[in-house]
Design a protein around this nucleic acid. Structure first.
Lengths: 223, 223, 223, 223
DNA sequence: CATGAATGAGCGTTCATTCAT
DNA sequence: CATGAATGAACGCTCATTCAT
């Protein structure tokens, strides 16, 4: 799935026309930010990596900080939309929706590993208020949705009472995040060294899904 | 608990005498690294924060990179010792030891939140090979120990078979890490806004302990 | 004679376009290096003296060391070309060619006094291997050429046998170098204090020519 | 010949007692200044090389600059004394005295190569006025003496008229200086690569003596 | 006397950004 | 639109020197 196929819905993000080059820079910036952190990745690095002139970064995004903000805006709106879509769908059971939520989240994390690495660091090194606000919005989005989902499940006596939603989401996001951080150790520890990257990602995804679904089941107490 | 009470055992860390000032700089550096990241915290910031002359950082640690390495060496050796002490203690049951492990880990994370934040970022922005090696050693230390513990429990038919140790440790460290990262959201979400910091940390610790012990129990299948 | 009139032949020296500013910085750097030595002349001094921003030195040359190397490359290639041109010219007698060599050398030293001062110090304080290699190449160039010239003269029974070429070149370069170093003493000692600089340089050149030609004549034994 | 055997005569050089350590530091400083230049040799380098505490350099000499000055004072007074002794000795012919002068000078240069390298650089990078004054004094000392010697020779019709004394001394010092600078090239060029250092120095000395005496003879016109 | 600790100044370099074209 | 050139600020670090003991 490419990045640019949501141009119409997201036109409001920036005054700058969101061209192919715009998304190309964003993708290269994402990789470098994930690899070296915001301060460690220089604008020159990003320009070189994207094969564009140094001054283009300021031209397109205004500043390094705004480049990061654009990246977050681009990535997060899509996430929020997906989360919110899920909450509206009332044709399926709470358990199914919980499991879809987990599946969606894991797929996202595995698919956008660099971005999730950046997000992790940005939450620690809290400098950019706009980025922080976006992260907070997403988090609350998730928490609110889970809250609704769990309430419904509780009403239907499928889920246990007294669920600590934050701990639950922390377990989901924490386990997933640790997994992508510890990918190489996981590989080594479980002797997956000769499997190609994408295949290994699939294995990871499958294992993580089963693991998190099992944990959720235990905590929520269903089935 | 002060930092310097292990001078004798750790004398080998640096040629520089590990004086009170040495530990003072280290503590201030820890806070700033946690707050702004390695690249974001300047040597000048650290010197100012520690109330020492800029040149003293080089004098005591050699360089900014070595300052970070010293911080990791100081913090980690103690951790490893504790982990290894636990593994030797054979007077208690596997379940008890698992629970002690969780308790120890959580206590450490809550007690040393800034350091765990740094460690998190350093795992993502993997530049300093020495730091990376230390983190890897600690991780393997934990994994090996859990491996032994779980094997014992499995032999005694207390634990289930086919436990994915890495996923288990990721859940433990991931949940804990997310909790300290999301502390403020947790506070807000659960209306703990008026409780003093240390008390709130205690609440966090208690909740996290119960949560992780429950999850471990479910996964390992005991009781 | 300006510096930039060889752009075409020397384009390979640096990736950076060898603009007017490039040569301007180089000239100012030359003066300061001659006056204060490599370590004594700061990049800030050079930038100020050239009237450019401090960062431009890195921009144009990469580093202070590379600035020095560029200076040597620019100056020396021209020298080598001239030396090699002389060796090819076979229409004139060995004596004439020796005397042209001396004339050329002295003219160069007097014309480029600052550079010869730098070269002198760089030979003593041997740090920059690239500069050292360039100096060595030039020296060998001279020695080889003199070797050929003298061999020819010896075959024609014009020059004596058993000439120590190194001692001969040392006398030439040593006398010239000492003269520019001791310029002020020479002035004082011979009461030339009120003569303008360029005129005095001409006197120096004339005297030095006569002196060295006399010495060479005595050593080589011609006429 | 050690350095300290003139303690009594030179006591006036410094208020500080000129102990063994004083001379030891001076010798190590001499080597480092010769190797790296004044700015390139740090006080730390010198202290380390001499095996003394860093603060001792300031303690003994006051400052880095004064250390250099002390070095020059120590070395030069001895030189001047020798030069002046020669001028007084009227029992030998002008030719003999000229040749003794050359011998003395060459022996000194070969024996104290590091110091002559320093002196060379200090004449170019003219910063320290005291050092400069000392060098000037020595130079004038030589020039004056040669002047007297040559006048005598001219009166006795042994030497030619119209001798440029400065050019003559420049040839002597210049050739000698170039030789020690180009030592390694000389070695290579003449295939002396396997001869031990001191032996090679002797060869150099012998060759240089013959060479300079020949040149002087030609210029002064005797015999 | 001698020394480890400390200091302020300044080093070469790199940064994100802007400007002129 | 796009770019090479330029800039001021700040970077990590080292310097010669001094101080307290």
């Amino acid at each position: 799935m490419t990045f640019s196929n949501n141009c119409l819905t997201l036109r409001f993000i920036s005054k700058m026309r969101r061209t192919e080059k715009y998304f190309h820079i964003l993708e290269k910036a994402e990789d470098l930010f994930a690899e070296r952190g915001f301060d460690g990745a220089t604008v020159r690095d990003i320009a070189d990596s994207a094969g564009v002139n140094l001054a283009m970064i300021s031209y397109y995004f205004g500043s390094k900080e705004k480049l990061m903000e654009s990246l977050f805006k681009e990535r997060m709106i899509l996430m929020k939309l997906k989360v919110e879509a899920l909450i509206e769908n009332k044709t399926i059971t709470p358990v199914q929706r919980i499991e879809i939520l987990i599946d969606n989240y894991i797929e996202k994390v595995i698919d956008k590993q660099p971005f999730y690495k950046i997000m992790l660091c940005e939450q620690v090194i809290n400098k950019n208020t706009i980025v922080l606000k976006l992260i907070k919005e997403l988090k609350l989005s998730y928490a609110r949705m889970l809250s609704v989902l769990i309430s419904e499940g509780q009403k239907q006596k499928i889920f246990k009472k007294n669920i600590d939603i934050m701990l639950l989401t922390n377990t989901m996001s924490g386990t997933a995040t640790q997994l992508i951080i510890n990918k190489e150790y996981y590989k080594e520890f479980n002797n997956y060294t000769k499997i190609p990257e994408t295949e290994f990602d699939n294995i990871l995804m499958t294992k993580l899904r089963a693991h998190l679904k099992f944990v959720f089941k235990a905590i929520l107490g269903y089935e």
